[in-house]
Design a protein around this nucleic acid. Structure first.
Lengths: 137, 137
DNA sequence: ATAAACCTTAGAGTACACACCAAGGTCAAG
DNA sequence: CTTGACCTTGGTGTGTACTCTAAGGTTTAT
């Protein structure tokens, strides 16, 4: 399968596939006489692995680690894989906590503001950001 | 106040202040004869505004918008400010939802995995990512 | 024979928020 | 008068995940 068709099947761009190849996430199975990339069933499986891993939140560099483990499963332990997963989960949790703080603050600001069409001279959002922190930490 | 002292007081780097100046977030009040940046009380207030806005989750470009409104309050409405805030809040909410999906998936993967020291040949995390999506969407 | 549709490479551009560097000017203390 | 601590500009580097461009080669259909 040439890159265009392969990309279409997976719903990604050809640029993405070339990018993944450059970053050692997915190498095409072979090249045609003209130097065109040729993808087969194995490549398809691997690309699906990558897309699923992306879907659960792994970054490309994390996926690269997962792939290296996957290629040599017997040289790595379950423990290692679980660790990667837990570390990622905890990172995600931290980010959620931070965003939740943001969400709370923004909600407070928005709820206090009248939102009317009058000039913003006394807008409570602006004054809150100007003055001493009126937001619950 | 020269840039170093000003930066110290605010707990940011001089690089940050120069960056903010370049991106029209904060211009020093004046320059000394030698061309040194000179910050005064007004600059301090504005920088505090910026830092508070950052603290509630606004990006620098959003803060720039807020500042433009703040500079000409009577030319803008409360409605406008509230809109910015709500839009940001909703964006944050979306991101939280996405990350929460990630967190769930990662938790499921981690919980299922034994995490033992044995080789990862049958690691449930890897097989789940290999096979048809076993994760609740 | 030629046009359309595909493919190749290398490299630049995007957004975000800075950090870091080099080469040089300025200022206060000793 | 020199040392050290500060300041200046302009430019490059970081990480993430692509996207786009230029300049050209290949394949397929008409």
């Amino acid at each position: 399968m040439k890159i265009g068709e392969f990309a279409n099947q997976l719903g990604v761009s050809t640029d993405t596939l070339r990018y993944y190849e450059k970053h050692n996430l997915l190498t095409p199975s072979s090249r045609t006489g003209a130097g065109y990339r040729d993808y087969d069933e194995t490549a398809l499986k691997q690309m699906e692995f990558i897309l699923r891993a992306k879907n659960v939140g792994f970054s490309l560099s994390e996926i690269k680690e997962l792939l290296q483990i996957k290629f040599k499963k017997h040289q790595h332990s379950c423990h290692e894989v679980k660790n990667l997963t837990i570390q990622k989960r905890d990172l995600v949790a931290k980010r959620i906590a931070e965003l939740t703080r943001f969400h709370k603050s923004l909600s407070i600001l928005a709820d206090r503001c009248c939102g009317g069409e009058e000039p913003a001279d006394n807008c409570s959002i602006l004054t809150t950001l100007e003055d001493i922190d009126g937001l619950t930490q």
